[in-house]
Design a protein around this nucleic acid. Sequence first.
DNA 1: TAAATTTGCCCAATCGTGTGAGCAAGAAAA
DNA 2: TTTTCTTGCTCACACGATTGGGCAAATTTA
Lengths: 340, 340
Amino acid sequence: MVTLKDVALRAGVNHSTVSYVLNGKAKEKRIAPATCERILQAAAELGYCPNANALAVKRGSSRIIGVLGSLRGEFIMDMLRGISDEAARRDFSLQPRTINAPKDIPVAVAGCRSYRCCGLIGMDFMPAEHAALKAAARTFGAPIVMVDTPIADPEYVTVNSDTFAGARDAVRHLIAGGHRRIGCIGIAELASRSAGYHAAMAEAGLRPQTGWVYEMLLQPNSGPGKFDAVAQTMEKMLVTERLSAIFCASDPLALQLFQVAAPLGIAIPDDLSVIGVAGMSYAQLGVPPLSSVSQPFYDMGRQTVIALEQKLSGAAVAPEIVLPTQLVLRRSHRSIARTA
Amino acid sequence: MVTLKDVALRAGVNHSTVSYVLNGKAKEKRIAPATCERILQAAAELGYCPNANALAVKRGSSRIIGVLGSLRGEFIMDMLRGISDEAARRDFSLQPRTINAPKDIPVAVAGCRSYRCCGLIGMDFMPAEHAALKAAARTFGAPIVMVDTPIADPEYVTVNSDTFAGARDAVRHLIAGGHRRIGCIGIAELASRSAGYHAAMAEAGLRPQTGWVYEMLLQPNSGPGKFDAVAQTMEKMLVTERLSAIFCASDPLALQLFQVAAPLGIAIPDDLSVIGVAGMSYAQLGVPPLSSVSQPFYDMGRQTVIALEQKLSGAAVAPEIVLPTQLVLRRSHRSIARTA
DNA sequence: TAAATTTGCCCAATCGTGTGAGCAAGAAAA
DNA sequence: TTTTCTTGCTCACACGATTGGGCAAATTTA
């Protein structure tokens, strides 16, 4: 690899002179224009590329952002891309590390520490993981930004989408469409979505009855048992409760509902309106295409990096950044005649 | 950050002694056991963590792998996770960089170069991008491994899944189930999948007729126009050609076929058998759950890192690593009575 | 002509780490 | 008692970069 010294040798100057010129301090250090020219040319000819590692050593800190997360699912990929794009724009590099279990967190943080990462991003951290990250990062000192996490914490900035408003608007839309018997399949860990449902129902003077609302647990990893339990609950909602619409706290949940409804002869959207949450690309591949509360994952990723850089520069950063969701109306819901 | 010198100070020795002890050269350098003990304890108390950047400078090369790709889609995430997990196991760090357009490649490679990445991984590179990567990497010198790419090149190792065999087996399965009028919706850039279809048909003595096979183009970014063109072709296949089964070169394509079939009153799998390719998690969320040729994306990612490390260690590496696919039989296809 | 100032560049220390060479003290051999 | 060997550690340089201080030559001022 070609170094400063190589360039200096070819230009016939000291390597420090090269450094000054290449860092735009030629004026300040009064390097002769002719010398500058010579140095620039030598650098170009040799294809000089500064050693970022050496820089990090010299500066005492790098421009590497550690990114910790489960690295599972399409929406995480979208967030990661947002993070990556914005990081590239701001001359940061990324260092992703998979978190498969809470025990991975200290290891991952140690890795980031060894590279002297200037900051940490936690993607989709669940409650149990929050504490572990905080503990691991405490001795580290780099600022943390959490993206798409249900937990706010004064110790770090969080970037989220407004799923409460998104869910509320979705249910409002159903109510405006004449629906009254509206159910909710929520996810216990993502309480704001169910809260949005409840808010919309309450403001319309509707009282969700027992059996209309089910809160599933995300944590126990998706075994077939869980899948069946959810399916059974869905079936009960459809058959016993005869709901005309169901709000689902996630797109996969909504598509699972499609699967449950089909054999029961319940047509979507004619017999049942369904709205999900996520904005996954495959939601539009459902039969019918799924109406959904779309979350701006890509932008959330970008905002995460922006917030991190602000924090690094010492600027004041809002502790909680909330991006709006968008209700994407496709064809899994419809208006119904109002019944008395 | 605590350095070697800090540890040395606390243990009352020179920093070089600390370095020897911490690198397991205590025996070789004959450091007294008591001193070792003291150093180890000091390091632990101070929470010493070696500076990977300084190491990279010293060694002249890092243990960072540059990962270039579009960073789009669930299967990329799976690959990336495989890469990440295997990298962690082998003490590599990753440095992902988004490639949104061919022009991003030189920039991304330059970034990897500045960090003195020890190797490069290209995910899902299309033909046009191959040349650009090769050109950008030429002056760099780090080995390249390409994963999930349709192009073989003697200049680098490729890791793929055997989509040819996967496609062939899927179509064989349809044929064994009594199907004769089997169509294929292929992707021009992923020719091996269609080739598998043709192979299975040929060995069964079946001749795909005009109108049974359609090759769509991936490149022109998914505008509504393309979507419609594909949908129209699908409709023609169903209505005019009256195919009993269709092999789709990707899962999204298969799910789109579901959408086209529904309004035509064509039931899946009763009237039409469908098998896709990918093994996306959402394939199982279709109505009915989609049968599919599942690709081992996670393992492909892992193998990529393994191959890269072998190449780095100077070992001989097979230029083309091909992993088996798996035919996941769900409920979008069925056997039919053989008609004369 | 001598002193002061400016120009244009180099020297050397520094960051954190690794490592070959060397040095002082004690032990063993002569 | 002197020589050799071993033990146990330190010294000093290197990696690639940045940067404050300084130095010689050229130029301006007195």
